[in-house]
């Protein structure tokens, strides 16, 4: 196997982008999976997408537009749910459809070819720019830093919001923080990883980690490892089989999830409990 390709700068950048994106997305994914708001990935990705198009249309930095839209949307999700007495997922669904509509209206207003915009949906990890890498690095560091710093508050809120409030943890603030981190991660991943790909990179590694551990710390760690490995396997496969890198990363992360689900000790415990049930009944009646 000729691996000389990994000596090239663009490939090294891609490997680094997969590492940073993998860590940031997978960490955010743990929140998303545990809070049961998996749709937030596509919702904020489309918000960022609409913001980027607006930027191009009005002549300001698309990245700025993407940030404003995705963080703005992340900020509205909570209040919309509270005001409308909806659950978070419904609120996310409403905003997702709005952002999708906006993105296509704005794209309709653009003249000329739209391939540059559409590439944001698929990402281009092989042509990742230095700015993308720096931003990805900064956001990954912030995400990991804040999770480490506020680990116990985050753990309490993920377990039960009311109980967190009852022990004096500002649960609302923590949830906004989580949404803010999700929005930032998605925005900086938009260009290198792509709006559609990001969904799988958020959900799959965290969902795989969820299959394997009962410890939140380990879940964060495993998710990050799976995120990185998905990216790297995807890159390698894309080179070896000459397939699009984004799609290869999606398939790699799905495979990791499949394996984790297959070998999940959590399922084994379930089977063990069922098998053990008659003996327990017998013991208690025998007393």
């Amino acid at each position: 196997m000729d691996l000389s390709i990994f000596g090239y700068q663009f490939m090294q950048n891609a490997i680094l982008a997969a590492f940073l994106g993998g860590v940031a997305c997978a960490t955010v994914g743990v929140f998303v999976v545990l809070m049961g708001i998996s749709f937030i990935g596509v919702c904020l990705a489309h918000a960022a997408f609409a913001g980027a198009i607006l930027g191009v249309l009005l002549g300001f930095n698309p990245l700025l537009g993407a940030f404003i839209f995705s963080l703005g949307t992340a900020a509205i999700i909570g209040p919309l749910a509270t005001r409308g007495e909806l659950n978070l997922d419904t609120s996310i669904g409403v905003l997702f459809s709005l952002m999708l509509g906006l993105a296509f209206i704005l794209m309709g207003l653009m003249s000329g070819p739209k391939t540059q915009m559409l590439s944001l949906l698929w990402g281009s990890i092989l042509t990742v720019s230095k700015t993308d890498l720096i931003l990805l690095g900064v956001v990954a560091a912030i995400v990991v830093g804040l999770v480490t710093l506020f680990y116990k508050e985050i753990q309490a809120v993920l377990f039960n919001r009311d109980i967190a409030l009852a022990v004096g943890i500002p649960a609302g603030l923590i949830i906004y923080g989580i949404l803010f981190l999700t929005g930032s991660t998605i925005t900086v991943s938009l260009s290198p990883i792509g709006g559609l790909l990001i969904f799988s990179l958020i959900i799959n590694p965290a969902a795989a980690a969820y299959q394997l551990t009962y410890s939140l710390k380990k879940m964060f760690l495993l998710a990050a490892i799976f995120g990185i490995v998905s990216g790297w396997i995807g890159l390698l496969a894309s080179y070896l089989f000459n397939v699009p890198s984004g799609a290869a990363i999606i398939v790699a992360s799905s495979l990791i999830f499949g394996l984790a689900a297959l070998f999940s000790p959590k399922r084994k415990i379930k089977r063990w409990q069922v098998r053990d049930e008659p003996s327990r009944v017998f013991q208690s009646t025998g007393k």
């Binding site: 545990l34 116990k152 508050e153 753990q155 309490a156 993920l158 377990f159 109980i163 967190a164 022990v167 004096g168 943890i169 969820y210 551990t213 009962y214 410890s215 939140l216 380990k218 879940m219």
Partner: peptide, 13 residues
Amino acid sequence: PISVEEVAMIGRY
């Protein structure tokens, strides 16, 4: 993913 002692620890937070 949270154990009994971790839940009780939330009280200490």
